[in-house]
Amino acid sequence: MSPARTQAEVEGRRQRARLWTTSGPGLVWIMLFLLIPSAGLLAIAFFSADDYGNPVLPLSTQPFQQVAGFSLLGWDAGNIAIFLRSLQQAGIATLAAIVIAYPLVFFILSRPPAVRPLLLLFVILPSWTNQVVRTYAWLELLGPNAPLSWLAHSLHLLPPELGLAPGSLAVTSGLAYNYLPYMIVPLYASAEKLDWALVEAGRDLYAAGIKLFWHTVFPQTLPGLLSGVIFVAIPAFGDYVVPALLGGDKAMMIGSLISAQFIETPDWPYGAALTLIMLAFTGLGLVAFRIFSRKLGGTGETAI
């Protein structure tokens, strides 16, 4: 009665073999061409740089000192300012996306079911056009010769020789524009499943308006909002194209700083250390966010 292995174990083993023959190639591909390379990138942060900026032994903490702002010329707050600016830009862009996404999602839901997919598609469509194209398109809108800048000039909000882009405002707008669909889609998914009976019940209990929204709608859409925040804030924080095209020198973000270490004036270990710190920030943010969302009762988990 006691065979070497139970049937459940045999089948479990067979199941795993099938999993690896079907899912294996894709998973190995991603591991080989993304996980290992990114581990390699992070490892480089602990090397010294040679004269050409390539990583060489011995291991060193020099790259991290550079990140903190120490160099041969002494300490400089530039990097910290860039980090803070990136955080601020990503934060404002995320907030803007939330503020736009909520009414837009409920607008779509207030329409007949047949047209909802189309309305949703039109929100997502701009994000399918190329990154570079839709970003430089904002230069046309905010550039020195564009209508919005004329308006700003005539209201004396802006010196006549400057445009709204390049600059901080342009970067924030560009980020919010680029990542808005990533907020809309998860938020729509959870708002679609909204239990309106709870809202009706709330109407009895909490009167109306903001309070009603806060007590009935908000908790139900929280899971979507939380994934939206993750999908907007993380890429916005490390974005490269938007600050490069719309930022100019004064609105430099962490992405431009990192890429500079690999392109213009190579210093790979320094660049890798910057990346490591950026990812650490992102990771910390994610963890803090997880804890925060658990407290709020959301799951923050994703589909698979």
Partner: peptide, 9 residues
């Protein structure tokens, strides 16, 4: 972030 992705590659 695609920047990290790209640089890793």
């Amino acid at each position: 972030p695609s920047l990290v992705f790209g640089i890793s590659e």
